[in-house]
Amino acid sequence: MAAHLLSPTPTPAGRGEVVRIGERVLFLAEIQVSRDLTEIRFMVSPADLRSGVQSLSAALERPGVSDASFEAVRKGSSEALGRAGSDISFVTLELFREKVYAGHAYGHPVVGTAPGLSSLTRGDVETFLKKHLRPGRTVLSVAGDVTAAAVQKLAQDLLGDWKDDPPTTPSPAPTPKGAPSANAGAQAGEFTRLVDASQSSVLVGVPGPAILDPEFDDLRLLAAALTILSFEDVVFTRRAAFSATAIPEALRAGGSLGLVVIAPHLRRDEAVFDVQKLMRRLAMETRQQKEVDDFARVEAARQASAFQGVLAMASTLGYRESTGLGALSVGRTIAPSASPSPARLKEIAARYLRPEAWVIVKVGPPSR
Rank of each mutant, 00 (worst) to 15 (best):
L251C: 06
R15V: 04
R134I: 03
V275N: 00
S51K: 09
A72I: 11
K130Q: 10
P176D: 13
R137L: 12
I348E: 05
A250H: 13
T237C: 00
A59M: 07
L266V: 14
E79K: 11
V25T: 13
F70P: 01
Y319Q: 15
A327W: 03
D218P: 03
E79F: 11
R35M: 08
Y352A: 02
L93C: 12
V33G: 00
D293S: 14
G326R: 07
I334D: 00
L5H: 07
A72D: 11
A223H: 02
L219H: 03
V206R: 11
S141E: 06
P12W: 15
D217P: 06
F96W: 12
S78P: 02
V235L: 06
L120G: 00
D165N: 15
P336M: 02
L158V: 05
E356W: 09
L159D: 04
L49A: 00
D36K: 06
V151T: 01
R267H: 10
K277L: 11
L117S: 06
A250T: 09
A357I: 09
E94D: 03
I40P: 03
G326I: 01
A300T: 07
V44P: 05
D233I: 01
M284A: 11
G123H: 13
K75F: 13
E215L: 03
A314D: 00
A210M: 05
P365S: 02
K346P: 09
L221K: 04
A304W: 07
T316K: 10
L266G: 13
R351N: 07
F307G: 02
F27G: 01
P115N: 01
E190N: 13
D161C: 01
V292Q: 00
G76D: 12
F216Y: 13
P10Y: 06
L26P: 03
K131L: 12
R15I: 09
F236Q: 14
D87T: 06
V151K: 01
G52A: 00
P115D: 03
M284P: 01
A271T: 03
L317E: 05
A312S: 09
G258W: 08
R351L: 13
T169W: 05
V272C: 11
L219P: 02
Y319G: 15
I88R: 10
V202G: 00
T323C: 08
E232S: 05
L282C: 06
G144H: 02
P176K: 08
A149V: 11
P214N: 02
F27V: 03
D36V: 07
D274H: 11
Q276P: 04
